Amino acid sequence: MILFGASGHCKSVIDIAESIGEKISIIYDDNPSVEAVCHIPVQKFLTDFRGTNETWVVSIGNNKNRKKVTEKLAKNFGLLIHRTATISSWSSIGDGTVVMAKTVINACTTIGEHCIINSGAVIEHDCKLGDFVHVSPNASLAGGVIVGEGTHIGIGASVLPEINIGKWTTIGAGAVVIKDVPDGAVIVGNPGRIIKTNG
């Protein structure tokens, strides 16, 4: 497997791979500031690079940047799930997604492509997450929650059942979401309230 992105998030992705015995052969980056991450060599990515038959994962934490790079690469994307994650056999997870340690994904949940499901997150039954979503550590989504593309749910946030969260929204750390959230909103507090809306 090949990674793109030599940031701090890359280290977490490497940890997932090591937990299941997946070998990372190399890491590419547009502007590498290091020569190696966790002893894996980092090389500058060239736009005319043709690659190999290996699978790729974009190891960039920022949702918008991850989407840009994914569209540029158009490679054969893989899937990484930490060995300690608990995943229902009735759920589905899209290519390019990474699922970190101690995560729980319950029955009939659908996770989109190129998502980050971070350490200790809980995603209950019948949730639907769009592409490029990031669920931060210890965040919890109750049953039937729908999350739009590119949304970031902050560390320790809680979302009540059957809530619809729009695209490219930000749910702040520790927020408690008790009602539907429109596209582009920034939510903070308990109960969660909109403090601004991004374009």
Results as ranks from 00 to 15, higher is better:
Gly189Cys: 05
Met100Gln: 15
Asn63Cys: 14
Pro191Ser: 01
Asp48Tyr: 00
Phe77Asp: 13
Gly78Glu: 04
Thr169Lys: 10
Ser136Trp: 03
Ile16Thr: 08
Gly96Tyr: 00
Asp180Glu: 11
Gly154Phe: 03
Ala101Leu: 04
Ile163Cys: 14
Asn190Trp: 02
Ser119His: 02
Lys72Pro: 12
Thr103His: 01
Gly61Ser: 10
Lys167Glu: 10
Cys115Pro: 12
Glu54Tyr: 11
Gly166Ala: 08
Thr47Asp: 14
Val104Asn: 11
Ile123Arg: 05
Leu79Phe: 14
Cys127Lys: 03
Asp95Tyr: 02
Cys127Ile: 06
Ser25Ala: 11
Ile146Met: 13
Gly148Gln: 12
Val147His: 04
Ile195Phe: 00
Gly21Met: 04
Ala157Trp: 07
Val159Cys: 10
Ile24Gln: 07
Gly156Asp: 10
Cys115Glu: 04
Leu80His: 14
Ser7Phe: 03
Leu129Met: 10
Phe132Val: 12
Val188Leu: 07
Ile171Met: 13
Glu18Gly: 11
Phe77Ile: 10
Asp126Leu: 15
Pro41Cys: 13
Asp180Arg: 13
Val147Leu: 02
Pro182Gly: 02
Ile40Asn: 03
Cys10Glu: 00
Val99Tyr: 01
Arg193Pro: 12
Val58Thr: 07
Val159Arg: 09
Ile171Gly: 09
Ser140Gln: 05
Met1Ser: 12
Asp29Arg: 05
Ile14His: 03
Ala142Trp: 08
Ile146Ser: 15
Asn198Gly: 06
Arg50Thr: 14
Ala175Phe: 08
Asp29Glu: 09
Gly144Arg: 07
Gly156Lys: 11
Glu22Gly: 10
Ile93Pro: 14
Val37Thr: 04
Gly166Ile: 07
